[in-house]
Design a protein around this nucleic acid. Structure first.
Lengths: 213, 213
DNA sequence: AACATATGTTAGAAGTTCTCACTTTGACAA
DNA sequence: TTGTCAAAGTGAGAACTTCTAACATATGTT
């Protein structure tokens, strides 16, 4: 540690902050730590993530995070919650421009679901790989319900229903199971062996139609 | 640590071992550690598993495992491999007595797959939750292929094919995705919310028929 | 019986999470 | 403008981890 003067590495430096001098207070350490955690989870994998690594990346002492998070778990949960929001936003965006009540909308949701698993495997694992199993956080619960709700509403429209009937829930559940499993398999195996030979869009279209008829 | 004389807690004591006196050598520490690891993974969850806990449970020093396993990861892999063998055996056993070339055989495999996820959630998570992603062990690879092979062979028979055609592989892959996703969802949520309202056997039967026709 | 090998043990290095007492800073009231 | 307080940093260290190194003790082969 040779530098007492130091150029900020965060990019979130406040305007009034003199450049070339390290601020004692960070500005927005919470956000910086979440971003550092996200990066590390993606690059090293959730298992290898350590709070100390995140501190090193953010350029603060190892005690600093505990002013913003209860513990390591809460840091990871924060990253998951942020990821889920992006995931939902992506799925909604994927529906833009696709005719209402068409199975293609279901396919589009599935494509986006798989894309998230492949593009952000670290967060996907944290969210669905069991890490959250023993954590009862209403925000995690609620986020999952919302995502499922998007799918259910599309299924209802495709089936010509106005509400979420039991039949809609059942078909939605089956579709969700399939897309979830497909995502996990591709996520695990990186398209290498099983499944890699098939066109993703074809598979999703196929299943959407089978499940809606 | 008050006892120098100690009754073996492992149940795998050798016959010649005088009862009431702790042996310096364990007898089969490798197996005992695998069993301890399995128990802890199921009771505390894979994330909370520590080698030291396993040592305490097996009644040996924390350095002992390293005579049998390269590191912590290798201990967990050993547990996964043993679990996969049981999983395969269960699936094959579930087929007994079910008429050949009937979709009910596919359903039976699915039921067993889900049962494993619910009965041995710790191992299920280790195997499929991403832990093995960065581990390239041919035995893990091979085990997965074998399980998938069981399904493929049943699909082929149902479709009246003699070999594993592309159509068979495609249907098998779709079925597997579904069952895998279903297992994961039920595993995560313990049947609590989504999906718990439906009869498992019905769902599997439904999907098997949709995918085979 | 003796020796080589396998399989234990203790001690400890390096790294982890998290707490505690302390310091610095920004904000706001007087 | 200035004094004070709360928020948000710091360093030190306790308790735990994984894993290594050096040593001790059984086992089985000759």
């Amino acid at each position: 540690m040779t530098t007492t003067k130091n150029i900020s590495t965060t990019g979130t430096q406040f305007e009034g902050q003199p450049v070339g001098k390290k601020a004692y207070h960070h500005g927005d350490l919470r956000a910086a730590l979440i971003e550092a955690t996200r990066q590390l989870v993606e690059s090293k994998g959730p298992d290898s993530f350590s709070v100390s690594d995140a501190c090193r990346l953010a350029g603060v002492s190892t005690a600093a995070p505990y002013k913003h998070f209860k513990d390591k778990t809460e840091m990871l949960v924060a990253v998951v919650l942020e990821g889920m929001q992006r995931h939902r936003a992506n799925m909604l965006a994927a529906l833009e421009g696709i005719p209402e009540a068409s199975p293609e909308r279901i396919t589009a949701i599935g494509m986006e679901y798989v894309a998230f698993a492949l593009n952000e495997p670290g967060i996907f694992r944290l969210k669905f790989g069991g890490f959250t199993d023993r954590i009862s956080d209403p925000r995690l619960e609620e986020g999952g319900q919302q995502s499922f709700g998007i799918l259910l509403s599309e299924v209802a429209k495709c089936r010509g229903e106005t509400g979420i009937t039991e039949d809609v829930r059942r078909r939605g559940f089956l579709l969700w199971s399939f897309v979830h499993g497909l995502s996990f398999i591709l996520h695990n195996q990186g398209l290498a062996d099983k499944g890699g030979e098939f066109d993703l869009h074809d598979l999703l279209e196929d299943v959407s139609e089978r499940m809606l008829s």
